[in-house]
Computed example of a mutant assay.
Amino acid sequence: MEHTPIMQPEERIPVGISACLMGEEVRYNGGHKRSRYCLDVLAECFVFRPFCPELAVGLGVPREPIRLVGDPEAPRARGSENENLDVTEALAEKGRMVATRMQDLCGYILIKGSPSCGMERVKIYHENGIPNAAGRGIFAAALMDANPLLPVEEEGRLHDAVLRENFITRVFALQRWKQEVETDPSYHALIQYHSRSKYLLMAHSYQGYRELGRFLAEAHALPLEEAMSTYIGRFMAHMARRASRKSHVNVLMHVLGYLKKSIDGDCKRELLEVIERYRRSEVNLVVPLTLLQHYLNRFGNDYIRSQSYLDPHPYQLGLRNYI
């Protein structure tokens, strides 16, 4: 049976990725770290832009490994054997360059533990070679500082169902922002984006849901560019928080509220029971959502059916089957 792609090539989202995860033999030892999940699954939704910062700063293949040395707050990227090899500034510049020149990126997937690309828990050594602390790779830190909106994750952490769903949700949320607001900026587009994202935001941060609602009530007093940049900065920061089972239950109950006057008592009891089963961790999120979708398609209004919470990413990825 012929496989139907999740998204057509022209619809796929640009996402940066460490080149070694694409199977490119760019690691210090001439090897790679090909990611089956990225290439076999996510490649149906993302257009990957591979980049190896160590190669880009002139280090060859194979090459002497580099490591982070010195002050944990400002480590240096030096050769593990030749201390005169220092590529700290060069790697940081590549991070800023990618953030500046690849404005269309909606996410970035990095390789774990790399002194250039590691997102967290990268070993930092004392000058004498003894491990000292843990930090962030030089390229990764510069990239994330220069583009704080960008969803960034390590490939290894994508094997965690909650982290995987959180990252991919943020990628699609940022893509919607670029398509729905940035392409034709207006206060109306900003309000519409927030209106469709309310329950998705609530699932990740109830505080953020309330805060951004108050902000938009007065946003017309600000220049449009300032209102947009402030909103999306806060929105993406709140979305970086992992949605919990408790917060999902809260949102499910809010969504159910739009059906109370349209469904009979038996249907309502059925929905409440399946939400309670999800709260007790007896089923995963896909179960109450599927039932809710069934009734929303029949009885819901346009507002609630338009909520991005209901389908924040393609269902074929099965992300909510595991949370």
Score class of each variant (00 low, 15 high):
3 H>Y: 14
4 T>G: 01
4 T>F: 04
8 Q>H: 13
12 R>W: 00
13 I>A: 02
22 M>N: 04
23 G>S: 11
23 G>Q: 11
23 G>A: 12
25 E>I: 00
25 E>N: 13
28 Y>T: 02
29 N>G: 04
29 N>V: 01
32 H>F: 01
35 S>F: 05
36 R>Q: 10
38 C>Q: 02
38 C>P: 04
40 D>E: 14
42 L>M: 08
43 A>E: 12
44 E>A: 11
46 F>A: 08
49 R>E: 05
50 P>A: 14
52 C>Y: 06
53 P>N: 10
64 E>Y: 02
64 E>T: 06
70 G>T: 10
73 E>C: 09
76 R>H: 03
81 E>D: 10
82 N>T: 13
87 V>P: 03
87 V>H: 02
91 L>E: 03
92 A>E: 13
93 E>G: 02
94 K>M: 12
94 K>V: 00
96 R>F: 00
98 V>L: 15
100 T>A: 09
104 D>P: 06
105 L>D: 03
106 C>I: 10
108 Y>C: 00
109 I>F: 12
109 I>L: 15
110 L>Q: 04
111 I>T: 09
112 K>T: 11
115 P>Y: 07
116 S>P: 06
121 R>N: 15
124 I>P: 01
124 I>Q: 08
124 I>M: 09
125 Y>N: 10
126 H>V: 03
128 N>M: 11
129 G>V: 01
130 I>L: 05
131 P>V: 13
132 N>S: 15
133 A>I: 01
133 A>G: 07
137 G>S: 04
139 F>V: 05
141 A>T: 08
144 M>L: 11
145 D>H: 04
147 N>E: 15
150 L>A: 06
153 E>M: 14
154 E>R: 02
154 E>V: 03
160 D>R: 13
163 L>W: 04
165 E>Q: 10
166 N>W: 11
169 T>A: 07
172 F>H: 07
172 F>P: 00
173 A>V: 13
174 L>P: 01
175 Q>C: 06
180 E>K: 15
184 D>P: 00
185 P>K: 14
186 S>E: 05
189 A>G: 00
191 I>N: 08
194 H>A: 10
199 Y>H: 15
202 M>D: 03
208 G>N: 13
208 G>H: 12
208 G>L: 11
211 E>K: 14
213 G>I: 07
213 G>Q: 15
215 F>T: 01
216 L>C: 05
219 A>T: 07
219 A>H: 07
222 L>P: 00
223 P>H: 04
231 Y>R: 03
232 I>Y: 01
233 G>K: 00
233 G>M: 03
233 G>C: 03
237 A>F: 13
246 K>G: 10
250 N>Y: 09
251 V>P: 02
251 V>A: 06
254 H>T: 05
256 L>H: 08
257 G>H: 05
262 S>T: 05
266 D>P: 00
266 D>K: 14
269 R>P: 00
273 E>W: 08
275 I>K: 07
276 E>F: 12
280 R>G: 00
283 V>H: 06
289 L>S: 02
290 T>I: 06
293 Q>P: 00
293 Q>M: 13
295 Y>W: 11
297 N>F: 08
298 R>E: 10
299 F>W: 10
302 D>V: 08
303 Y>I: 03
303 Y>F: 14
303 Y>S: 09
307 Q>K: 11
308 S>V: 13
310 L>C: 07
313 H>E: 12
315 Y>Q: 10
316 Q>C: 04
316 Q>M: 10
317 L>R: 09
319 L>W: 01
321 N>T: 04
